[in-house]
Computed example of a mutant assay.
Amino acid sequence: MRNDEVLKENVTQFSGKLQKSVIEVQQKYGDILNIPHHVSEMHPQMPTADRAAQFAPFAALTGYKEAIEETERLAEEKIEREYE
């Protein structure tokens, strides 16, 4: 089989799988796919910058880094004592 034939066959297989996937999604969620997006009449839309800020990185494990460093320090002291 030539390279272009293999490529064409792969594209055909991928296209078939993609079509099957799209059909499955439409069957599962077809009842809600075309519902219009809700816009509140009472609350103004949050600015994009504020929306992005709520997903900014944060320190979920406060103090974790310090605990690891302390464990490392204690382990190094123990190793030093063993080789004295």
Score class of each variant (00 low, 15 high):
Tyr29Ser: 03
Met42Ile: 13
Gln54Val: 00
Glu80Trp: 15
Glu84His: 10
Gly63Thr: 04
Lys28His: 01
Arg81Phe: 15
Thr48Pro: 09
Ile79Phe: 14
Ser21Asn: 13
Asp50Phe: 08
Val25Phe: 04
Lys17His: 12
Arg81Asp: 02
Glu24Phe: 15
Gln27Glu: 09
Met1Glu: 07
Ala49Lys: 14
Val39Asn: 02
Ser40Trp: 10
Ile79Thr: 00
Ser15Val: 03
His43Cys: 07
Ile35Tyr: 06
Tyr64Met: 06
Gly16Thr: 15
Leu61Thr: 12
Leu18Ile: 10
Val6Pro: 01
Glu82Asp: 14
Asp4Tyr: 07
Gln26Trp: 12
Ala59Cys: 05
Glu24Gly: 03
Pro36Asp: 00
Ala49Val: 06
Phe55Ser: 09
Met46Asn: 05
Glu24Tyr: 10
Ala60Gly: 12
Ile68Glu: 03
Ala60Val: 07
Glu5Ile: 11
Ala75Phe: 14
Leu74Pro: 03
Val39Arg: 13
Glu72Leu: 13
Glu77Asp: 07
Glu5Trp: 01
Glu69Ala: 04
Lys78Gln: 09
Asn3Cys: 11
Val39Leu: 01
Pro57Ser: 04
Gln45Ala: 09
Thr62Gly: 08
Glu80Asn: 13
Lys20Phe: 09
Leu18His: 00
Ala56Tyr: 10
Gln45Gly: 04
Glu84Asp: 12
Met42Tyr: 15
Glu66Arg: 05
Phe14Thr: 05
Gln13Trp: 12
Gln13Leu: 14
Glu72Gly: 12
Glu5Leu: 09
Thr62Asp: 08
Asn10Lys: 14
Glu70His: 11
Pro57Thr: 05
Lys28Gly: 00
His43Ile: 13
Val11Met: 05
Thr71Met: 15
Arg81Leu: 14
Val39Asp: 04
Phe58Gln: 07
Met42Asp: 06
Lys65Leu: 01
Met46Ile: 11
Lys65Thr: 12
Leu61Val: 04
Lys28Met: 10
Val25Gln: 05
Glu9Ile: 10
Glu24Val: 04
Gln26Ser: 07
Glu41Gly: 01
Glu5Val: 09
Ile79Leu: 02
Val22Glu: 03
Glu72Met: 13
His43Asp: 09
Val6Lys: 08
Asn10Pro: 00
His43Pro: 07
Ser40Leu: 00
Lys17Asp: 06
Ile32Asn: 00
Lys65Ser: 07
His38Glu: 11
Glu5Cys: 04
Val6Ala: 10
Ala67Lys: 14
Arg73Ala: 06
Ala53Glu: 04
Pro44Phe: 05
Gln26Asp: 11
Phe58Trp: 15
Glu66Thr: 02
Tyr83His: 10
Gln13Cys: 05
Lys28Ala: 06
His43Glu: 13
His43Tyr: 15
Pro36Ser: 01
Gln13Ile: 15
Ser21Leu: 09
Arg51Tyr: 13
Arg51Thr: 08
Thr62Lys: 08
Val11Pro: 00
Ile68Pro: 02
Ala52His: 13
Met42Leu: 08
Lys28Ser: 01
Asn34Arg: 10
Val11Arg: 11
Thr62Tyr: 06
Glu77His: 13
Glu70Pro: 05
Val39Ala: 01
Val11Asn: 04
His38Lys: 13
Lys17Cys: 00
Gln54Cys: 10
Thr12Lys: 12
Leu7Ser: 10
Leu61Trp: 04
Glu69Ser: 01
Pro44Cys: 02
Pro47Thr: 03
Glu82His: 11
Glu76Ala: 14
Thr62Asn: 03
Lys8Ala: 07
Met46Ala: 08
Ile23Leu: 15
Glu82Asn: 09
Met1Arg: 08
Phe58Ser: 05
Thr48Val: 11
Gln26Asn: 13
Gly63Gln: 04
